[in-house]
């Protein structure tokens, strides 16, 4: 009798756990549709400075922009292609090019504010592409 009770309790725990984790996954996976919102993987520019991130999800799914809000006038479709251009600089952004088209202080936060929102840096990039950066881990504790 005791054994059965134990199994029942254990089973109940496992079942709720499984259901909860499945629900979480579902919410993350199924809501995001790459055809509607663009590639899920973040775009990382490493030129002219390391490293700047762009998330389609933040701009399309969360902020409600369409593909043709940016493509192909502001950015070409090819991921990360903009960094090959000479004028892909902060100065250019302040003149309203690239991200600066919206990040001007009225449509979205101005591109000369909140630097680290997009500039994730060498550390942020290393973390994104797998594990903590080697030096990042070491520097913390000498």
């Amino acid at each position: 009798m005791k054994k059965i009770l134990l199994f029942m309790v254990l089973g109940a725990f496992l079942l709720t756990g499984a259901i909860l984790s499945a629900e979480e996954k579902k919410a993350a996976d199924t809501d995001y549709d790459e055809d509607t919102y663009g590639p899920e993987a973040p775009i990382v520019w490493t030129k002219p400075v390391e490293s700047v991130v762009f998330q389609h999800k933040t701009h399309t799914m969360d902020a409600g922009l369409d593909c043709d809000s940016c493509h192909d006038d502001i950015f070409v479709m090819e991921a990360g292609a903009a960094q090959e251009n000479e004028d892909f600089t902060m100065a250019s952004l302040y003149e309203g090019n690239y991200c600066g088209s919206c990040h001007d202080g009225s449509t979205a936060f101005a591109s000369d504010t909140r630097c680290t929102t997009c500039h994730i840096g060498v550390r942020g990039h290393a973390r994104m592409i797998g594990g903590d950066s080697k030096e990042g881990g070491e520097e913390g504790h000498h």
């Binding site: 630097c115 060498v122 520097e139």
Partner: peptide, 29 residues
């Protein structure tokens, strides 16, 4: 204003021949 591009670190390493296991300057987060 720091964006952790770590150009300062690279320049320091080159100028002062800092080995990869140490640092004279670094960026914390």
């Amino acid at each position: 204003l720091c964006i952790d591009c770590e150009r300062c670190k690279a320049a320091c390493v080159e100028t002062n021949s800092v080995p990869e296991y140490g640092f004279r300057t670094t960026i914390l987060e």
